[in-house]
Every structure is written in structure tokens, then in C-alpha cells.
């Protein structure tokens, strides 16, 4: 039996049986719901003024109720909520083995540790890909229900392309969270890192260094952080890719070599 298929099957079973699958799907669903709510508010400004703070925030983010704004909210939401939820998923996939003490059952096996780590990253990738597509589809339905103007196929595909690029870039930041979950042997440390990385991303984005900081790049791409998406160059994508490679390698090395003394 192929060891990767066996390990992937094991990981997928854990994900399928876990409540966290539903919890993350529920968390992600807030994104299209909030996007749709913003569109409702923006579509009827008179009514929006009666809503106070929410309508003020909506005005700040979008300004007009149309498909470009709606897609913009989805992309921005993915850059923020996506990073948090992807990190929660990664922390769970790696950290739960330590929290439940099941890691010791994964070490002295004919299935190599590298294969186990690889299958974990693949399941995380498929999980976040599925959720991201689901969220985009739900966003389309929300926009269609609110009946906002400005639709075009070209807009759909370009928005979907940049949305998926944000998803891909955010996923590439996950090996660092996996490494921290492994070293920290649980969930808390990677979740702490997630919020620290978000804060640093905001600060460095505002200071103009965001293009060089991997955790700022998805935000810049969604035009959330910093002055403009134009700041991004090939170097920004390379920095993210490098972070992915280093994080992945370090996680594999750690699983292969570190003492599992607890």
C-alpha cells in the first residue's frame, strides 16, 4: 500500500470526523454574509444611515453597491479572515497530535515522517481550497440575491483569479504556523503567532515595507494594507514562496530529527 495514500486517508478521516470542519466552514460563511449585508446597506443609503456604525464602516470600505465592490470585500475578507482560519486549521492539523498525545503513534511507523507531514499539508491545502471556493460561490449567491449592478464575466474571472491568488499566497504562509505548532506541541503558540503576524503585517504595510514582508503580501494584493497594490512586484511573491519553502523544510526536518520526549 502506498504510504502517502494511507497517510492521506488517515488525515482525511480525522478532518471528516472533526467538529472543527464545520466550525471553520461556519466561520468562513460569515464572509459572504457580511459582504451581502454591506451591499444591502450601500444599496439603500437612507436606510443605512439609521444603522449607525455599520453603515459608516460600509461607506469606508466600499462606497457603492456593485459587483466590483462586492468582490473587493470578498478578497479583503479572505486576506484577513482567511489567514486567521487557515492558521486555525493548520494549528489543529498539527497541534492536535501533540494535544491528544497521538504524535507518539506516528513516529515509530513504517510510514515515513516526511510522508505524514506532506499528507498533512495536502489535506490542509485541499481543505482551505474547498472552503475558499465555497465562500466565493456563496458570495456570488449573496450578490445575486441583493441584485447589485456591474456584473460581467470578465470581472468575475479576474476577481476569482486574484481571490484565488490571495488564497494561494495565504496557504503558502501556513508551514510557518505548522512549524510553530510542532515546536510548541499544541495550538496556543501558532494562534499567538497568527495574531502577532497580523499586527506586524499592518504595521509594516503602513510603513511601506509590506512588499517585503510575506504576511503583508496577501493584504496588499487585496488592497487592504498599505497604499496600493502597485507596490507588489515579483520580489513580493518570491518572499512568500521562500517563506513556504523554508517553513515546509523546517517542519519536515523538525519532525524527522527533533526529540519527542513528551
Amino acid at each position: 500500500m502506498n504510504t502517502f495514500i494511507a497517510s492521506f486517508w488517515a488525515e482525511s478521516l480525522k478532518v471528516r470526523r472533526s467538529l472543527i470542519t464545520l466550525a471553520t466552514a461556519g466561520g468562513f460563511m460569515l464572509l459572504p454574509i457580511v459582504g451581502g449585508l454591506f451591499m444591502i446597506i450601500l444599496k439603500d443609503p437612507e436606510n443605512a444611515k439609521n444603522l449607525g456604525l455599520i453603515s459608516t464602516k460600509a461607506q469606508l470600505v466600499g462606497g457603492v453597491a456593485d459587483w466590483p465592490s462586492h468582490f473587493g470585500i470578498l478578497k479583503t475578507g479572505m486576506a484577513i479572515a482567511g489567514f486567521i482560519l487557515f492558521s486555525i486549521i493548520t494549528s489543529w492539523v498539527f497541534g492536535r497530535e501533540f494535544a491528544d498525545h497521538t504524535v507518539k503513534e506516528l513516529l515509530a511507523l513504517p510510514t515515513p515522517r516526511t510522508v505524514i507531514v506532506a499528507s498533512k499539508f495536502v489535506i490542509i491545502g485541499l481543505w482551505v481550497l474547498l472552503l475558499s471556493i465555497l465562500i466565493f460561490a456563496a458570495g456570488l449567491i449573496a450578490g445575486w440575491l441583493v441584485d447589485i449592478p456591474g456584473w460581467s464575466s470578465a470581472l468575475l474571472w479576474s476577481s476569482f483569479g486574484s481571490y484565488m491568488l490571495i488564497v494561494g499566497l495565504t496557504y503558502m504562509l501556513m508551514p510557518v504556523a505548522a512549524l510553530i505548532a510542532s515546536i510548541g506541541r499544541g495550538y496556543l503558540l501558532p494562534l499567538g503567532w497568527t495574531f502577532l503576524a497580523m499586527a506586524l503585517a499592518q504595521i509594516l504595510g503602513v510603513l511601506g515595507w509590506g512588499e517585503w514582508f510575506p504576511w503583508t503580501v496577501p493584504g496588499l494584493l487585496s488592497e487592504l494594507t498599505g497604499p496600493s497594490v502597485e507596490a507588489l512586484g515579483i520580489h513580493s511573491y518570491m518572499v512568500v514562496f521562500l517563506t513556504f519553502v523554508v517553513g515546509l523544510s523546517a517542519t519536515i526536518i523538525w519532525w524527522r530529527s527533533a526529540d519527542q520526549s513528551r
Binding site: A6, R17, D100
Partner: peptide
């Protein structure tokens, strides 16, 4: 102490072990 995935059944836990053991 023994360890197992609490959300999985006895059979599922052992099925994981069976596959990982090849």
C-alpha cells in the same frame, strides 16, 4: 498512556493504524 483520536471510533482508530503500518 495509550493515545487515540477521541472523535474516531475504535474501528476507525485501528483502521488508521492498520493502513499506516502497511
Amino acid at each position: 498512556s495509550p493515545a487515540a483520536y477521541p472523535e474516531l471510533t475504535v474501528l476507525e482508530n485501528l483502521e488508521i493504524a492498520r493502513r499506516l503500518q502497511g
